[in-house]
Amino acid sequence: MTKKAVLIILLLLPFHSYSQSKIEIEKRIKKENAPLPAQKFVDSLYFSSKIKWFVEQDFNKKTYEAKTKSKGKKYSIEFDTLGNIEDIEVVIKWQQIPLSIQNAICKKMTTDFEKFKIKKIQIQYSGNSTELLKLKKNTENLIIKYEIVLKGKKNAQSLFYEYLFSEKGEIEKEQQFDFRNTDHLEY
């Protein structure tokens, strides 16, 4: 980890205990610096476009991420420090979310915010690695969730938030986050 990243983490530590904010530091790395099982997993997905590798560090954990584009879709494949697959996320459009889940999301957002604007939507797939390797053909045995990144206004203050909804539209996680790290959304 660079001196700059360590300094940023140390400066932010006092604030972490008082907030539920998500602050991540993401850094581009070479493929060789990612765990070997992660490299092999991504290679077995046979993406034709370039794959960019990142290491992501927050207060609780460190992960590795491979990002790529394929057939007009943006993929993000996340691994733990040992190279075990955690999930695969694909950027989608609002219309691709089932109507019942759209309604649940809108209900939650109108309750939480005076105004909001969705910035990014991802469908998140998780499950065992064998089933995740079949993702391009079959999602039947996978756990599906929806991650929503938005800018919301409440109490006259606009901030960025990340929400995670289950396949049934139930809220699983919500947190404010620092959007200054532009690499976080890079593909």
Rank of each mutant, 00 (worst) to 15 (best):
K31Y: 04
S166C: 06
E114K: 09
K151I: 11
V42C: 04
S129N: 11
L10C: 13
S49H: 13
S70Y: 11
Y163H: 13
V42T: 10
Y18E: 13
E56M: 04
K27Y: 08
K153Y: 04
C106N: 14
K119G: 11
S21P: 07
T81N: 09
A38V: 05
N84M: 02
Y18W: 11
Q124A: 10
K136Y: 03
K154N: 07
G83N: 00
T68D: 05
I23K: 12
E162H: 05
L133P: 05
K153R: 10
Y125Q: 03
R180N: 14
E140V: 11
I92P: 01
P37H: 00
Q122F: 01
F179A: 15
I123M: 07
W53M: 07
Q20S: 13
K119W: 02
C106I: 13
K67D: 00
I121E: 02
I148E: 07
F15R: 08
K93G: 04
T63D: 03
I121K: 02
Q102M: 08
K50F: 05
E131Q: 15
E56K: 03
P98L: 00
I51W: 04
S49G: 06
E32P: 05
L135T: 07
K22A: 10
L164Q: 08
I123W: 06
S21V: 09
V42A: 02
F179P: 15
Y146K: 05
A104E: 08
M109D: 09
Y64E: 03
K168V: 12
F59I: 13
K134Y: 06
L11G: 11
N60L: 14
V90W: 07
K74T: 08
F47T: 00
K120D: 05
D80K: 02
M109I: 03
K27G: 06
Y146R: 03
V149N: 15
I8L: 14
N33P: 05
D183S: 15
N155E: 10
I85K: 02
S44M: 03
N138K: 11
Y187R: 11
I143H: 13
T68R: 05
I123F: 03
Q175V: 06
K154A: 10
K61M: 07
K3W: 10
N141P: 10
E89Q: 07
I51Y: 01
L99I: 15
C106L: 14
Y125P: 02
P35D: 00
K173L: 14
Y125C: 06
M1I: 12
Q102Y: 07
N33L: 12
E86M: 12
I121L: 11
Q96N: 08
A156E: 15
E174M: 12
G127F: 01
N103M: 11
H16V: 14
S158I: 15
F179W: 15
H16E: 13
E26G: 06
E24L: 06
Y163S: 09
K115W: 01
A104T: 09
K22N: 12
S48L: 11
P35K: 00
A38L: 04
K145H: 08
Q57E: 15
T110C: 08
K168W: 10
V90H: 02
S17R: 14
N60F: 13
F59A: 13
K173Q: 09
S126H: 08
I171L: 15
Q175N: 13
K50Y: 09
K119H: 08
F41W: 02
